[in-house]
Simulated assay, not measured.
Amino acid sequence: MSSAVPQPRTTAEPEEKPAARAAGGRRGLVLALSSGVLGAAVVLIAAGKTWQRGTAPYAGGGMPVEVSGHQVTGVPGALALVGLAALVAVFAVRGAARLVVAGLLALCGAGALAAALLALGDTTALDAAAATASGLTRTTVTGDSTSAWPAVSAAGSALVLLAGAVALLRSPAWPGMSSRYDRGTAPKAARPGRTAPGADEERPEDLWKALDRGEDPTEAP
């Protein structure tokens, strides 16, 4: 009678090593920090630059007018500041709150990106500047042009969006601001083979004091 031969068990794929997970978490942290800070800085710088130029009719001729990113739309700059605050808050909270803040960071990047792209063909602010310069309530600029700064603002907004996406995926494995203080308050475990100094361990100064009193420290009590 033939005996049943046990079939070899199929082993599951080995789990990702802790060192690999830690390295991936560090890379995600560096990517989120660098892209978030750089993107917000680019958006804020671009907001102060000239976005549109044109010519307003004035006294039978023309007067050059221009508007900055702040005048065209204040949304990217405002969302960049909120995004910076959210980026810092990601490390101050944990758990579900961290995911909420990471989602807010991603929304800030998406909103700033949409606002920068919508401003590319909007000449409302330029027409308003032309009306103010010419003194006419209704006027339209001629020969209007758009600089590269709206596109630069959109690129910076995309970096903020990337930081938010990375934070959503990787932030649960990141340390928090208070983790090192939590570790510092934990009592240290005693090392095996070593005892804390106590009554059973005589110090050299105790032996000298016993000799000064005329006692023999070698005798058992």
Rank of each mutant, 00 (worst) to 15 (best):
A163Y: 01
A19W: 08
P172Q: 11
A148C: 06
P76W: 02
D122Q: 07
D127F: 04
K49P: 07
G111V: 04
L113F: 10
L169Y: 12
L44R: 00
P18F: 03
R203K: 13
R170M: 13
W208C: 04
L159E: 00
L120E: 09
R9V: 14
P6Y: 10
L118A: 10
D200H: 13
K209V: 14
G62C: 01
A114H: 14
L44I: 09
A20D: 15
P187I: 12
R170E: 13
A106Q: 07
G193I: 01
L44T: 02
T73W: 08
G103T: 02
A116R: 03
S145D: 13
L161I: 06
V82R: 05
K17P: 15
P14V: 05
D200T: 13
A210Q: 13
T10H: 15
L126N: 03
R27H: 05
L99T: 14
A220T: 14
E13S: 14
I45G: 12
R94L: 06
T11N: 14
S147D: 10
A119G: 11
D212F: 00
G62D: 06
L29F: 06
K209P: 03
E201P: 00
L211A: 07
S145N: 08
S147H: 04
G28Q: 00
A186D: 10
G28V: 00
A96H: 11
L159K: 00
E205T: 04
P187G: 08
V90G: 03
A97R: 07
S179I: 11
P57L: 00
G103Q: 02
D206G: 03
A154L: 00
D182I: 00
A12W: 02
G24E: 12
G62K: 02
A102S: 13
G36M: 04
T146M: 11
L211F: 03
S134H: 10
A40M: 08
A4I: 15
